[in-house]
Amino acid sequence: MNGALKSLASSVGGAVLAIAETIGGAVTLLFRILRALFPPRYDAEGVWRSFYNVGVKSYPIVVMTALFVGAIMVIQTAFYVKKTGATGIIGYGVGFSVFAEIGPILIGLMFSGRVGANNTAELGTMVVTEQVDALRALAIDPLPYLVVPRFLAMLGMLTLLMVLGDLFAIVGAALTAQLLVGFHWRVLVADLLQSRLLDEFTMGLVKAACFGISISCISCYFGLAVRGGATGVGRAVNNSVVSNATAIFVIDFVVGYLYSL
């Protein structure tokens, strides 16, 4: 009994320590990034390259996900309408859930899977093949050269992609409404546009920006902390996506709560 309690306590303690270490590492990295931004000392050319890389990598998955998110939310709302007969809420229900909640979460998760995981793998591979040490040996600081451009690109790109995602979610919703539910797409879009969802829309963008910050800091942290060869990189990617997913739900809650105050 005593032994079981002890092992439980030590495993809980170990988990708490690991979480604290991740949060500490990511936040420290964030502060170092901010210090490199004011006054700006980063690689301007690298920033554009990162924007391009991040955008090209992630826009297909964001667009596809957004189409399906719109479609799924129409179906879910239509169920409810079928039960209650309140057709007036379709446009509003879809718009509200997509802009404020489900859109940012799903697009954030996909972005974390595509760009965040990729970033951890890329930096992790650079660490285990000593390319990061080679940069340092050439007297080039890895932070402004590798991390800051990725931070800016993820922050900027995810915010932009959220606008694109909202648009495509409307397209997906309109198509599904027309083809599956038998609800005229024009009525849906008109309802949606009249629902005064500007607050929800901007909240989605704020969430996206916060996700961009957390995804870049967490994925860079895990990438740069890789130890132990190929297995180490795989494990780091796994840790990075899990931490990012958790961070997305926590941030989603905090931003949603603060926004309504």
């Binding site: 179906i75 996909m110 297995t231 795989g234």
Partner: peptide
């Protein structure tokens, strides 16, 4: 060894997307 990182990344995206697509189809 570099391939492992890329395979892991690909798995995250494909499995997540598969969940979204299956959700749509079943819904």
């Amino acid at each position: 060894s570099e391939g492992v990182g890329w395979a892991t990344t690909r798995a995250v995206v494909s499995t997540s997307f598969a969940v979204v697509v299956l959700d749509f189809l079943i819904s």
